[in-house]
Computed example of a mutant assay.
Amino acid sequence: MSKQPIFCDEAGKPGGPYTHAVRAGDFVYLAGATPNRPDGTRVEGDFVAQARATFDNLKIVAEAADASLGDAVRVGVYLRTLDNFQQMNSLYSEYLGEGTTARTTLQADLPGFEIEVDAVLYAPLSEG
């Protein structure tokens, strides 16, 4: 099985020497998305604005990998403070549905932003 790196100019620029995602067979591993814009600047504002930008980035990268957030099987959510847990749950349900993924939510020391989200997608390659 080969690995295919996926970089997406329309999503927030990664914060280090890695790609937005990697496809390995029928699975796509999405790197942690943050509220970064493609030009490297960060979406400022309240938690909801940052979380929407983060989930939008994750969605854009999933689509660049010929998949969707509906293909998610496991999601990791990292919050600067668990005080935002309920707002995150509401947005999570909007973007990923309810009861369709395994998920871990952790409090993390995030550098200057409120949320980061990564995911594993099961998106079988079409035959042909």
Rank of each mutant, 00 (worst) to 15 (best):
V43C: 04
T34K: 01
L58A: 12
E114R: 11
Y29W: 10
R103M: 15
D83P: 08
E114N: 02
T19S: 13
P111E: 13
V28R: 05
R42V: 14
P35A: 01
Y92D: 09
G99Q: 07
D71Q: 05
G45W: 10
E116D: 00
T101R: 09
N89S: 13
V73S: 02
N36C: 12
A64L: 05
E44A: 10
D39C: 00
Q107A: 15
T100E: 01
R103V: 15
T104M: 02
G40Y: 04
G25A: 08
Q107T: 08
Q86G: 04
V22D: 06
T104S: 13
T100N: 14
L30T: 02
Y122L: 14
K59C: 12
L110Y: 11
T104A: 14
L82G: 01
F55G: 06
P17C: 06
A21V: 00
G99K: 02
Q87N: 13
E10S: 15
E10G: 05
L79D: 07
D56H: 01
D46V: 03
N36A: 02
G15A: 06
H20Y: 01
L121H: 00
V22C: 12
D26P: 09
G70R: 04
E116M: 01
V73Q: 10
A51N: 07
N89A: 15
E44Y: 04
D71H: 11
F27D: 14
M88R: 10
V77N: 05
A102I: 10
D26S: 14
N57A: 08
H20K: 06
E10Y: 05
V117G: 04
L82W: 07
Y122F: 15
Q50R: 06
R37L: 15
P111V: 01
A11D: 03
V22M: 07
G99D: 12
V43W: 00
S93D: 12
I115G: 05
P14H: 11
A31G: 02
V120F: 05
V28G: 05
V120A: 14
T41Q: 01
N89W: 00
V117D: 06
G45A: 07
R52K: 15
N89V: 08
T105G: 01
A62R: 07
Q50M: 08
T41E: 13
D118W: 07
V22N: 09
A49M: 10
D26C: 03
A24V: 14
P38M: 03
T104Y: 01
T41G: 06
N89E: 04
I115N: 09
F85W: 09
V117H: 03
F27S: 08
S93L: 03
V43R: 04
S90M: 13
Y18Q: 08
F27Y: 15
A11F: 05
V75F: 07
E44W: 02
